[in-house]
Amino acid sequence: MKEHPVDNAIKVTGVVKRYGKQTVVRNVDLSVRTGERMVLVGHNGAGKTTLMKLMLGLTHPCEGQLRVLGSNPMTANAEQRRKTGFVPENVAFHNTMTGEDILALYARLKGVAPAEYRSILVQVGLENVANRRVSTYSKGMRQRLGLAQAMLGKPRLLFLDEPTTGLDPSLRRQFYDLIDTLSLSGTTSLTSSHSLNEVETRADRVTIMKAGAIVACGTLAELSRKAGLPAVIRLRVATGHAAGVAERLAPMGRIQQVNDHRIEVACIETSRMELFRHIADLGDAIEDIDMIPARLDEIYNHYMENEQQ
């Protein structure tokens, strides 16, 4: 039977999840397109893991609807479960088992042939330690083993719950490189993280969650624009002109004179071109110009604080 293409790998509508009296997920609407790399950002306890559990069919929503790969995850059959991969946060495999034992077990459960899991071991770079007990693995190796089991059966959808917590920057890069490779072959991924910086180049879109609700969703550029945070224009000024330049540019934005040779103007997007025209008029008084866009953590903080009220 030919499968109908699904535009949205994940579609969540009006989902609410309460544990006892505590509401953990509040009225969440979210769509993730097929092949997209979506990153879910938020503090600990923002509801990221619960949202993933809902999408994985591990727990029932109290209200709302979820469609994952075109079906309700709570009633997903074995075939649908084979198409998803999951790396839980801080997963700790049996210490007495070897990497290969663990992968072999999960492969059998998913009905994946031994040849395939062996090639995955190579892909994640664990082939040389596959026969060692997991207790001898480093944190990075364990995380790669976690990803390896999620890659079994060529999943169309990957859920990664804070997969790089505790990894050093170089391992983190390797980890995301692997996910990018999967993404190139059309795998949709939903990754949670508590830092925007970490996923800067790794996300097609970002969803920011706070206290169980989604406060923003879009590409990083969109989020930055919507936040309306000023970019900083940094000017190197010829000797003796600093005071004059500062005075001329004062109406354009918040001015900070760093020293005799440097002035910084914080300027929102809408008045940026006008500022540049003013700077051009200043002629030789300006020796160099640099623009520093709002930092990711500033954007993140903006959304976190704005929703506080």
């Binding site: 591990l58 059959n77 997963v91």
Partner: peptide, 13 residues
């Protein structure tokens, strides 16, 4: 405690 249960239940199990 090891989170392996969570993982196991996302398999066809």
């Amino acid at each position: 405690e090891r989170s392996t249960m969570l993982l196991l239940l996302t398999y066809p199990v």
